[in-house]
Simulated scan of single mutants.
Amino acid sequence: MSGTIQQGAVTALIGPNGSGKSTLLSVLCGLQAPSSGQVEFAGQALPSYSRAQLAKKLALLPQRNPVPATLNVADLVCFGRHPHRPWYKNISNDDKEIIDWAMQETGVKHYARQLLTDLSGGELQRVWLAMVLAQDTEVLMLDEPTSWLDISHQLSLLKIVRRLNQKYLKTIVWVLHDLNQAAQFSDQAILINHGLIVNSGEAKRVINAKDVSEVYQTPVTSHQLGQQQILWPEEQQ
């Protein structure tokens, strides 16, 4: 498997369950070693970076996160600053400014003092996003960030991430299950099956009816809906 993540772009990792999307994301983050070859970041082999160095360049939002019952929103977002300061030092004014900025950008600042357990699933996911944003890295990696969210909160989070990319030139790599959302909100896509790259490149080219039908073993057709091309499963007799 080989490929390139384009700097400053939004890249979707797509493929059936068990195809290797989350594994690839883990390898790209340096949490798991590749079975062969190597991963490079900015022209340098990933293992050559220390964990502290890498945490200032890459931030990961995993699929599932435990919810600490005693923490409020601002407390959790504050954890995003840990790579930038020794554990024994209090947060600085600069840290506070970045924490406030991250909460503002993700729309969670108005309930900064609320307990995490008082939030809805969609609100809580935006708080986790604020935490990784406060890490202030060049690259954000998000593993199925819209899973378990209703359609309103899915779209809200997708739009926030897209805005972060366009406004602050954040490089985004995310695993998405909804192929139409992946095509709409991503610049690039990597289609994976059985641990291998089937296709990669411009999202709207990669996410096509032929390849999706073959990889997902489900016939789909492409339809024009307004200005957007969408894929829809065919009715099977």
Results as ranks from 00 to 15, higher is better:
residue 144 E to V: 02
residue 145 P to R: 02
residue 145 P to L: 03
residue 146 T to S: 14
residue 146 T to D: 10
residue 147 S to C: 00
residue 147 S to V: 12
residue 147 S to R: 01
residue 148 W to Q: 13
residue 149 L to T: 09
residue 150 D to H: 08
residue 150 D to W: 06
residue 150 D to E: 14
residue 151 I to T: 01
residue 152 S to V: 09
residue 152 S to P: 00
residue 152 S to R: 09
residue 152 S to Q: 14
residue 154 Q to R: 04
residue 154 Q to T: 05
residue 155 L to E: 12
residue 155 L to R: 03
residue 155 L to I: 14
residue 156 S to W: 06
residue 157 L to N: 01
residue 158 L to M: 14
residue 159 K to G: 03
residue 159 K to V: 04
residue 161 V to N: 04
residue 162 R to W: 06
residue 162 R to L: 08
residue 163 R to C: 07
residue 163 R to Y: 01
residue 166 Q to N: 10
residue 167 K to N: 13
residue 167 K to T: 12
residue 170 K to Q: 06
residue 171 T to N: 09
residue 173 V to C: 09
residue 173 V to F: 02
residue 173 V to D: 04
residue 174 W to F: 07
residue 175 V to Y: 08
residue 175 V to T: 11
residue 176 L to E: 12
residue 177 H to Q: 10
residue 180 N to E: 13
residue 181 Q to G: 08
residue 182 A to R: 04
residue 182 A to P: 01
residue 182 A to V: 07
residue 184 Q to A: 15
residue 184 Q to Y: 13
residue 185 F to V: 06
residue 186 S to I: 05
residue 187 D to W: 05
residue 188 Q to L: 04
residue 190 I to Q: 06
residue 190 I to T: 03
residue 191 L to W: 05
residue 192 I to D: 12
residue 193 N to M: 00
residue 193 N to P: 10
residue 193 N to E: 15
residue 194 H to A: 15
residue 196 L to H: 10
residue 196 L to E: 14
residue 196 L to T: 11
residue 197 I to Q: 12
residue 197 I to V: 15
residue 198 V to R: 10
residue 199 N to A: 15
residue 199 N to P: 05
residue 199 N to G: 02
residue 199 N to W: 00
residue 201 G to S: 05
residue 201 G to P: 03
residue 202 E to R: 03
residue 203 A to G: 11
residue 203 A to I: 02
residue 204 K to M: 07
residue 204 K to Y: 01
residue 206 V to Q: 09
residue 207 I to Q: 03
residue 207 I to V: 00
residue 209 A to D: 07
residue 209 A to L: 05
residue 209 A to N: 09
residue 210 K to H: 15
residue 212 V to P: 01
residue 213 S to A: 08
residue 213 S to P: 09
residue 213 S to W: 04
residue 214 E to D: 10
residue 214 E to W: 05
residue 214 E to V: 10
residue 216 Y to D: 09
residue 217 Q to L: 07
residue 217 Q to R: 04
residue 217 Q to M: 01
residue 217 Q to S: 14
residue 218 T to I: 01
residue 218 T to C: 12
residue 218 T to E: 06
residue 220 V to Q: 10
residue 221 T to S: 14
residue 222 S to Q: 12
residue 222 S to F: 00
residue 222 S to L: 11
residue 223 H to C: 14
residue 223 H to R: 08
residue 225 L to N: 06
residue 226 G to L: 01
residue 226 G to D: 07
residue 226 G to Y: 00
residue 227 Q to C: 01
residue 227 Q to S: 04
residue 228 Q to W: 07
residue 228 Q to G: 08
residue 230 I to D: 12
residue 230 I to C: 08
residue 231 L to S: 10
residue 232 W to T: 15
residue 232 W to R: 11
residue 232 W to D: 10
residue 233 P to F: 13
residue 233 P to K: 07
residue 235 E to T: 10
residue 235 E to F: 05
residue 236 Q to I: 14
residue 236 Q to P: 06
